[in-house]
Design a protein around this nucleic acid. Structure first.
Lengths: 345, 345
DNA sequence: CTGAAAGCGCTTACAG
DNA sequence: CTGAAAGCGCTTACAG
């Protein structure tokens, strides 16, 4: 099937010149006579010759290929980041390959081997809030990797991860969400989300508390429930919270860590016969493509994921060490409504 | 940041042997004395040396990297295929990079250039039903690419595309769906789907007609509506169909070409005040992660996308030329219900 | 069991 | 403007 590719030697001999000259016209150098250039170009076209970027990379030590590591491509959130990164990379002449999260996860047979042997020009890693011990492990792998290739992080990046990164200002977003719900009249606002990272001034818990404080609402332990990021996790988390509370103390609004969790919450609420949004407002995070088609259509916060992916590539290739923050946007849909003060439960 | 990598020469001189010997222990050859092997291994560990797979590939002419081209990663359907392919590839020591659909789409500046210069060991292309002229274009690009690397197709592959492929038996699936709806009592069954490919015995239209024939139901032109694959397309398609029909002729069930289109149909039906599934049953295709969370939860057909991606990699690396068909599974949820004969419209 | 040499397909000084 | 030669970091016969 795959026939032998012509090499620079074939072109040189076809055109009756040296390989150095062929190389010159390939790279578009100006110091080649028109006549020679045309001879070479004809030979190239006749053979349909394309120089091997692999061989090229040997001298330049550039592979023009990037890697990306993310927890789960099946979450459209990461698919959007990947897409943004891929498109930007392509414009700059780079390719991006997907590596599994497990490349970082264990020290077993040093899964990063594949990553390193590829001689990538850079690596993008999407991190999530991680339980502490696990986080240490990942951080160690990242530090190891950085010794051989530039690394840029995306996502929930604690400040003591001394890596360039592009992330969101989670605290500010969360505060905006809380105040938005307050503006709708909500006073019992729950937050179902990931595990906290101490000392991170941009973490969501900070914004959650700040928002409540600004609205002069109390912080209530039982409204803060932890969970991972799947719909099932969200469903279980809401169930646990409601089971533990008398109905009169049930929250009137729930902030979900992401749209998947919000979907699970909708399922649980529906199963319990709660009307949405009358009995329970829910707000998601990520604004996935399916948000408008949920019931009710899910209010969510758009985090500009494609732009995030693109910026990560730019930081990577620009060798910039700073941390960047990407803008966001609250997208109102029907899942959050003004509270019905006189509601019946 | 990225420090200079040690080379095989560094290791050789550290260990006091020739690079040929280092190469032997790297590749785990047996004809090396224990003593020498250990000297070399110690040197490798001290320097944290990893051989460059790039340089390796120069001689072997293998890059151990694959490419995948798909219409849109944001559709979870393709994210699942990608994930399956990536996992299988990794097990076999390969990497997979994402290339944009535009690599095939236009002949402008020969976008496939990047693909070819990378010297990929193989390429997976996810195709969709395409309007004829456009399809010809893509087919030409694929034939061109195949001259320099193995290509395996995934998806709706007409029989005259003489490529190895892994796909579904769309006709059989469609027939099963029609008969399933018939078993629920439906007689007015619409199909909102992609454009037909003449002569393909596995295309959905074949199964649609066969199912109807077997159930002794007439094929009705106005129940067969064409659309592309987004939720908006689906919504518009259903709107168009209903607008064109008197309510008493409205279908009682709609088969959507994929879950996205089904989502759009749900939106349109809801806007019109149709109760689902009482007034309208809808069935999707692909069984996306969000299907269980739609309203009503969407009955759909699971096409085992991860397995599909994995099989494509196996065909690619095995050099097999055959076409394969992957199994499927109808997943019943609440969006399809027995028809209510005495329903009020 | 080990090493010297050639080769993979390019680029990069260096001469001319 | 053009070419001969060395080099990128490996593997692969070929000798010994």
């Amino acid at each position: 099937m795959a026939s032998e590719n012509a090499t620079i030697y074939d072109i040189a001999s076809d055109a009756g010149v040296s390989i150095a000259t062929v190389s010159r016209v390939l790279r578009g150098e100006s110091n080649v006579s028109d006549e020679t250039r045309q001879k070479v170009q004809r030979a190239i076209e006749r053979r349909n010759y394309r120089p091997s970027s692999i061989a090229r990379g040997l001298m330049s030590k550039k592979t023009h290929s990037l890697g990306i590591i993310l927890p789960k491509l099946l979450n459209p959130h990461y698919a959007m980041i990947f897409t943004g990164a891929q498109e930007e990379a392509r414009m700059l002449g780079y390719t991006v390959s997907l590596f599994p999260w497990s490349s970082l996860d264990t020290k077993a047979y040093d899964p990063a081997t594949m990553l390193i042997e590829r001689r990538l020009d850079g690596l993008i890693v999407c991190v999530e809030y991680l339980p502490d011990d696990h986080g240490e492990h990942v951080l160690a792998s990242l530090r190891e990797l950085r010794r051989v290739m530039p690394v840029v992080l995306i996502g929930c990046v604690p400040p003591w991860y001394d890596f360039p990164a592009v992330s969101n200002n989670n605290a500010a977003m969360m505060k905006e969400i809380v105040l938005y719900l307050v503006s709708l009249g909500h006073e019992r606002i729950a937050f179902i989300g990931g595990f906290a990272e101490d000392n991170d001034p941009q973490r969501r818990d900070i914004g959650y508390r700040e928002g409540l404080r600004e609205a002069r609402l109390p912080y209530i332990e039982s409204y803060r429930v932890f969970c991972k990021g799947t719909p099932e996790d969200g469903r279980a988390a809401l169930r646990g919270m409601l089971d533990a509370l008398k109905p009169e103390y049930w929250p009137s609004a729930v902030i979900a860590m992401n749209d998947l969790v919000a979907m699970g919450c909708q399922g649980e609420a529906r199963d319990r016969g709660l009307r949405m949004p009358e009995d329970l407002s829910i707000i998601g995070w990520d604004d996935l493509f399916c948000a408008p088609y949920l019931c009710p259509p899910l209010t969510s916060i758009n985090t500009h994921q494609q732009q995030t992916g693109a910026r990560a590539v730019q930081l990577l290739l620009g060798g910039e060490q700073r941390r960047e923050t990407v803008d966001w946007e609250l997208v109102e849909r029907a899942s959050c409504a003004p509270i019905n003060k006189g509601k019946e439960i």
